[in-house]
Design a binder for these strands. Structure first.
Lengths: 221, 221, 221, 221
DNA sequence: GATGAATGAGCCTTCATTCAT
DNA sequence: AATGAATGAAGGCTCATTCAT
């Protein structure tokens, strides 16, 4: 893969150049911005028409830059897909624990974790749409997606559950619940609304209901 | 070119399709068999290389028949994909209730339903691999896949759970559990082993563990 | 197929367009020249093998450029045919009156007009060969061809005849003679030598003879 | 070429078989009828969509018989085209002299000959449409068409003109007029109305006018 | 003999990639 | 460095022809 694509980062648009407005043809020389534009265009297009059916021409047009840059920056269409996944994966690393405060009871925690995962999958639907078809074909991509998809927060989730469960519950069940939360988030937050076209509202209620059952199950030993 | 039109000369090549010698191939007349061969070949190839990267040439070769039949029988590559989905969907309609006897306790039932769904998704992995990428792009295909995937037995599952739960549990929770069983089956039976490349053994243990928790949660009211 | 999805294996071929080594071919940037090369190649080939039997590959090879340009420049094979007709039609607009000085007598004028038309049809034989088959099927193309073929100079011819005929002859007959000149040019200059394979020499003599008869007919009122 | 196709002839439908109505599947075994049906279908279709764009399937469907017969009877699509031309050419051999009585004056004769030729070309337009594109490419076919097209009655016409011109006119001019009649018939009867889409009415008037001029030219020596 | 299902070569076209400008 | 015009490999599909029924 192309190692450059990982170093995209925030837009450093206003550089520290002398502010003398060069009246040349406005050939922007802003690589990071163009890289991100390409990645965002590709994410959108891959998600909506699929990787194969999206042409590099379309991506370039949508990103507002030249087709050749896809090859210069990302080493081709395939590289752009990989870069796209890296980009989104490295975004928001300070997730979950920095966003969602620990609840005070186990039930509430499970409740909010499921809800949070469902939302996250929904927010990341374009990335998932773009990458899952490839993940299905290429195990390497699969591994990659697994870090964005159902398993992303498995560890953090398990940890949080453990914090609220000093006493009784055995570790295996905590692990299992963590896995289940990821799975339910993926299915209720992505597969059902996006792929199967089911309505999201009942899904949330069902998810909440399951959280309750799981909590009771965990505590009734 | 020649300057005198009169000497137009001998037919440039051979008018139209050149008369090919005769590569000889045993021409049998068995439409249903060939249709199925094509569907099976397509399922295998779409699953392993993806729809777009599979050529009709490959499919025909793999099925042992002529490329033209894909167009004659299924109206093209796209039609073959749809036919493939219909074919697999209409197969084994008499499932679940005719295959899996009702367990005697609710815990056992949930246990075996999850295990059964996980197995089913695994068995149908090629169909899912072939159809999910399209389902992601086309809502119509999505609806279709939903009847093969996570929701296939939702109804039957809910019914079975109700049968074993004369008393206490409220209907909403039963529904939720049925949904969860489908979701867990899809993630633990397809996404994790096939797409994410996780090992299947721990998954089954986790699934069994979750079944226990769910059961307890259901009963501890 | 492999039974374990994890071993999906290395990328089947290479994802998408395989990276071809580099056959090297001097890539020049000269659009107008290539367009004309394609048009000339197409004219020649359509004329000699017919539109349908000429492949875009052949045209590109004959023009010495890439097949894709046919689509980029002319929007496909069909477009190339139309472009070809436009090209030849717009060429030499300053014809007849700028090339052929008015004769001093009506007889001489009719004589030289017929001869000139016969020659023109012969010179344009490739264009006519390429376009007539389409003109036969498509009225729109037919209209087009009519402006290159038998009627191209009808107006100018009538005008010239009128100039030499201040007195007697009525307009209708002048018109008719103009038409006849076009018709005779087409048949004696194109149909007979090119299509029917008749020798051109006697044709010219016959044409000259007819010019005489027509002139006499016009004057003997 | 296929020598059978020439022996098509009239429909010998009611054979001399025993009239015991065989109740078998009504597989007609009426070769000449099917041959003619195929030829008529092909003429119509070739004329309207062109040879290359007409499929053998269409021809067979339009003729109401099996596609394979085109190959059995005519040795393929190309053979059918040739057979078609033979068929139409051998039809109505007893033309002109048996249909059109000699006029009493030279002017009337030229007049009616042109009118007759114009009509004939119009009647044969389908045959001409079907065969001219091929005639343009293949000199052999060209020769053939020449016997159906502009030159068909050149001899007979010249003969008739000579009969009415005992005295003065020299042979060369008679020949030239005969040629001109064929040419004008072709252009005014076929090219202009069919190909160029011009209206036929003015054409006839123009043709008549030309007949007059030619006559006068012939007589004013 | 007649039928029409099966065959597969070849076509037009697309589009990732290259590279002159 | 950026652009986008040029390249050409490869694929879906058509359809004349063959041949089992």
């Amino acid at each position: 893969m192309n190692s450059r694509s990982r170093t995209l980062s925030a837009k450093p648009k206003s550089r520290n150049r002398p502010v003398i407005p060069k009246p040349r043809s406005v050939r922007k020389r802003d690589r990071p911005a163009k890289q991100e534009a390409l990645i965002r265009a590709a994410t959108k297009l891959f998600a909506s028409r699929g990787y194969e059916l999206t042409t590099t021409r379309e991506i370039a047009a949508c990103a507002g830059c030249a087709e050749g840059l896809i090859h210069r920056y990302f080493d081709g269409k395939e590289g752009l897909l990989l870069a796209l996944m890296s980009f989104h994966a490295s975004r928001e690393v300070r997730e979950l624990n920095e966003t969602l405060p620990l609840a005070s009871t186990l039930e509430e925690e499970i409740q909010q974790l499921i809800a949070w995962e469902v939302d996250r999958m929904w927010r990341d639907r374009d990335l998932l749409r773009a990458s899952i078809p490839h993940a299905i074909l290429d195990p390497k991509v699969g591994k990659f997606v697994s870090r964005v998809g159902p398993q992303r927060h498995a560890k953090a989730i398990a940890e949080r559950l453990r914090l609220l469960n000093h006493e009784s519950v055995d570790g295996e069940e905590i692990e299992a619940i963590a896995q289940a939360i990821g799975a339910l988030g993926f299915v209720f937050g992505f597969m059902r609304p996006v792929v199967l076209g089911c309505d999201g509202k009942p899904a949330k209620k069902t998810a909440a209901c399951l959280a309750k059952v799981l909590t009771r199950g965990l505590q009734s030993r």
